Simulated assay, not measured.
Amino acid sequence: MERHYGMDWLRIGAFGLLILYHIGMVFVPWPFHVKTAHPLAWVEIPMFATNPWRLTLLFVVSGYASRTLLAKAGSAGSFLLSRSSRLLPPLLVGMAVIVPPQTWVELTTQHGYRHGYLPFWLGDYFRFGTIDGIIMPTWNHLWFVVYLWIYSVVLACTCAALGRHSLQGWFDRAFAGWRTVVLPAIYFLLLGAVLFPQIEDTHDLFHDGVAHLRYLPAFLFGFGVARSPLVLASFARHWRVASTASVLCFATIATLLVLWPDFTFPETPVVVWTYRFARHLETWTAIAALIGIAERFWNRDGRWRATLAEATFPFYLIHQTIIVLVGGWLLPFVLGPGTEFAILLLATVAGCWALYDAGRHVGWLRPLIGLKHRPR
């Protein structure tokens, strides 16, 4: 398969936005592993520029990349072996080494835990139980890796049973033209606004059914798009309409949050349904707009593309731990939010780059941070 540089840039941008979003989680009133001393309700407004669609987009681009990996692997079994070797070692290392500092900072800053990090890691983290309701050991933000591996297993089994191209013709006919934008948008509206409006993601693999109904179809959709020039052309044709709808949805949510900060909405049908409709319509219209833009304008190589594309997974593995550690360290200084944000951003980018730069030059470390083995 020919490489689609636009989807590479979209993947890079999606993970970059994820890092900014998790820094923002320090400042909003929503629960997080570390919180600033003075949460700001207005930060919820820019957060909702990406909140409805950021994770679904990651699964779409992951499904797209999986089609390329399957083509290179040659068979469903080889694909699954390749995916497992790239995802499972970083997941296990992440749960054992990268994630524990997040749990320790959360316990010490929000739950009165008094022990230092080393006693916590050696004595409490691997208890396979809870402290004040916090489950240990855990995967925290690495839930995405778990779900991605499970979806890869589902994909490999489906391809082994039916063939990788058996449903491609149906996919092309079902989602070409205006249906590229409209049909998935209807699905996400029905799922989030009508059928399960009160259910949020739990990141618990076995008790997260609504999330799976959102993310697995997105992953499979990305897999189908990767071999569908017809659907990609439809995205490129309708990106303006999708962009307009997405901006209007965000403007609606922003207006509601200005009128009723921190979701203190009145329980009236008009307000409740307006919020639900705007949030869940934004999910697909934003994704459709971004894929259309990537197809039409970004499908060209650049000097930093290959490096940044390789760095996204190591950045993802370590970024939240850096945010939580630095955020916890900054708490006693009671800095202004602007200064705190700048420090968090600079420290996160520097720490992520340091891990990636060290890992790519150390052979045994490469597979532990999600990089390919370097051939001898």
Rank of each mutant, 00 (worst) to 15 (best):
F120T: 05
I134W: 14
F175R: 03
H115V: 10
V154S: 08
F79W: 05
I98R: 06
W104S: 01
G169K: 15
L81H: 15
E106H: 14
T68K: 07
H141C: 03
A174C: 11
Y147C: 05
A160Q: 14
A176K: 13
G129H: 10
L80I: 09
L118A: 13
V154M: 11
L122I: 08
L148D: 09
S85V: 13
W143C: 02
S75Y: 11
S82V: 01
L167H: 09
W104P: 02
G169M: 07
F126T: 03
R86F: 00
W104E: 01
A160T: 11
D132F: 07
R86D: 00
W121Q: 09
H165D: 15
Y113V: 04
S166V: 10
R67V: 02
G129V: 09
L155V: 01
G123V: 06
N140F: 08
Y113C: 08
C157L: 13
Y64G: 01
P90C: 02
A176N: 12
K72Q: 15
L107I: 11
L162A: 12
L80F: 12
I135N: 10
Y125C: 04
N140V: 08
M95E: 08
L148V: 05
W143D: 11
S84R: 09
W139S: 01
L92W: 15
R114K: 15
I150Q: 03
S82N: 13
A174K: 09
P100H: 09
R127I: 14
P90N: 04
A73R: 04
A160D: 11
L118V: 14
F79M: 03
R173S: 15
F126S: 05
T158D: 01
P90S: 04
H141S: 05
W143N: 05
L142M: 05
L122C: 09
F128V: 04
L167Q: 10
L70M: 14
P119T: 13
L70R: 07
V105A: 10
R164K: 13
S82I: 01
S75N: 13
Q102M: 14
A73K: 02
G77N: 11
L92G: 03
G116A: 14
G133D: 07
R164D: 12
F128W: 15
Q102A: 00
C157A: 13
V145N: 00
S152R: 00
D172C: 08
V99E: 00
L107M: 13
R67Y: 07
